[in-house]
Amino acid sequence: MSDAVVPHRAEPSAAPARAGTGWFRRALDSDIFYSFRRSKLTMVAATVTLLFFLLAIFASVLSVQNPFDPAQLQLMNSRISPLWTADGQSPFLLGTDEQGRDVFSAILYGLRISLVVGVLGVVFAGTLGITLGLIAGYVGGAVDGLIMRIADVQLTFPAILIALLVNGVAKSVFGNRLDAMSTLVVLVIAIGLSFWVQYARTVRGSVMVEKNKDYVAAAQLIGLPAPIIMLRHVLPNTMGPILVIATINLALAVITEATLSFLGAGMPDTMPSLGTLIRIGNNYLFAGEWWIVAFPGFALAGLILSINLLGDWLRDALNPKLR
């Protein structure tokens, strides 16, 4: 999936220009809300994204079965077409797959997995990137050089290869005993490790600019320790671009997970994410059992689309040059 590479080089000229201005304060300005309300598409995207998150959170309430519990799957009920078709059966709104898994429930639970992997991956990448970026920018010198060299090395690889690598290393370390939960952790780490560089670079850039400003000097003067200065004073100033990166990364993380699962390194079939559902369902497309792949596909596309739209809007809204 080529998507995984975007953020690094998407806009070579834009990032440095953006870095370093007083983003966060401006972000909270009413300009943002104004531009939000002006764009109907963005409002729809925000609603849809919110809806997806709610669906994932309340998956167990909304679904007719727990698709991860084999005892609840009845093979008798396999391959039922959606409710509105001739062979549809209640309560399987979107039909069932070859194991008798209710597609609607599977989507809700799969959404949960995909979002957990995506959000945690982004949080992990963000934490790692921000920390390293702060350190590099603030400390400077050899430390900066080392961190940025590692970042350069990392940047030469597409995220998907890094994720595959991390996955492979994990498999070799844990042997063949990776259960579903540890697979999830591995995915989070794999995705986190492939996306941290951008955060680091952005934060470092901002820190380099901010640290020479008077207020930092003042803070140093009254004897605040460096970590406090960085976290409390410098970091908030970089939140705008970080938010943009995180939003776009979330979409990428979800799609990276799907691709990993296509290559056989994703979530297992017994605990499917949206990506795994699509991979499984893909095999039934020619057979005419389109609902097994179509609905998870729509869900994934809808989720990524709305997150991307949000990200786009956020970037434009936070970029004074485009306003």
């Binding site: 093979l75 194991q99 008798g100 297992p268 017994t270």
Partner: peptide, 26 residues
Amino acid sequence: AICQAVVGMLARIGVKVDLLAQPKAQ
């Protein structure tokens, strides 16, 4: 898919099976 079905059937007699499905190499 056969393994998943077996897991479901055993679940009904109270045996909880954790399925580890892997490519043939592993």
